[in-house]
């Protein structure tokens, strides 16, 4: 096995282009499990941890640019205002030691349907920046996940950054697991309300081969929600929203939970996220008035 330690992005892209089967390693919290348990024996490991650009974050026009290699701990400490749902999701990942190392780039690279960052990235319409020796391009998170653990990322590409739109309303993230720490989600849900464009975003995790949106639920709430004054939606509206979110889910039975339980928990989380969002929305509305 060859171990490459590029110190610039250009070197890393050249390495990835020369070794399309080479496995990038950032925090290592997914890659090392596979190596330790002999599940993977790549010919080449490409260490991305020495590339300064990947570890940086900062404003970028209407976005916050989050380097693909920024660990969760930094996101929790620094980006709660800029990316509330992502920061909340980051809080629920694993343990402090893992959050000190694990990254959003790694979560996207592995693209497990249970990855906690996917629902917020979908709900908030985040954009993923990819680069190769051929150049840089951006892909909306909503177009990134193609099929089980398969994404728009090409073999010669690396994920360089995630562009997080400035929040324009409440954002939520909820996750079901067996305890408070160290759990892969049984089901996860993120909701984002955009008061400026009057749109709703959703993201569902662990309930299908890929992370997904509940588009019918988004359209329903966009039409039903009282964007003007944020009045509390009727019980029927809340229930219908929950049903529509649950019906988008395509879960399976596995050791973490049954399909029925997952669908049910999706509707509960959706209703809860909506009621929290409305409370927050009304606070925002009174502040602006």
């Amino acid at each position: 096995m060859e171990f490459l330690s590029p110190s610039t992005l250009e070197e890393a892209l050249e390495a990835k282009s020369a070794h399309p089967d080479g496995v990038p390693i950032m925090g290592g919290t997914d890659v090392m499990v596979e190596l330790n348990f002999d599940k993977r024996r790549p010919e080449t490991l490409i260490d991305l941890a020495r590339i300064p650009e990947l570890a940086e974050w900062g404003p970028d026009g209407e976005y916050t640019r989050l380097g693909a290699g920024v660990p969760y701990t930094r996101i929790i400490e620094n980006l709660q205002k800029q990316a509330p749902a992502l920061a909340r999701a980051s809080r629920t990942v694993a343990s402090p030691q893992i959050r000190n190392r694990g990254t959003v780039g790694g979560n996207l690279g592995g693209a497990s349907p249970a990855g906690d960052t996917h629902p917020p990235l979908l709900a908030t319409d985040a954009v993923i920046e990819l680069a190769s020796v051929r150049g840089r391009r951006t892909v909306a998170a909503r177009d990134f996940y193609l099929s089980f653990r398969t994404t728009a990322l090409q073999p010669d590409e690396l994920i360089t950054a995630i562009l997080l739109p400035a929040p324009k309303g409440p954002q939520q993230f909820l996750k079901i697991g067996t305890r408070n720490a160290m759990v892969i989600s049984v089901a996860g849900f993120s909701l984002s309300l955009d008061a400026e464009n009057r749109t709703v975003g959703t993201g569902l995790g662990s309930v299908g081969p890929t992370p997904m949106r509940a588009e019918a639920a988004e359209e329903f709430l966009t039409a039903e929600f009282d964007w003007e004054s944020g009045s509390v939606p009727s019980e029927a509206t809340v229930r219908r929203f929950g049903e529509l979110v649950a019906s988008a889910a395509r879960p399976i039975d596995d050791q973490r939970g049954s399909a029925d339980y997952r669908k049910h928990s999706m509707s509960v989380m959706a209703r809860r996220a909506l009621s929290w969002s409305v409370t927050e929305y009304r606070k925002g509305a009174t502040r602006c008035a």
Partner: peptide, 28 residues
């Protein structure tokens, strides 16, 4: 050896991490 138990915790450049989740070359 899978990041679950924390018994391998060390400081890595001043930050605690599971040493079983760090590749040897990353420690250079």
């Amino acid at each position: 050896e899978q990041g679950e138990c924390g018994s391998c915790t060390v400081y890595f450049d001043g930050v605690t991490a599971c040493s079983c989740m760090i590749a040897a070359g990353q420690a250079e």
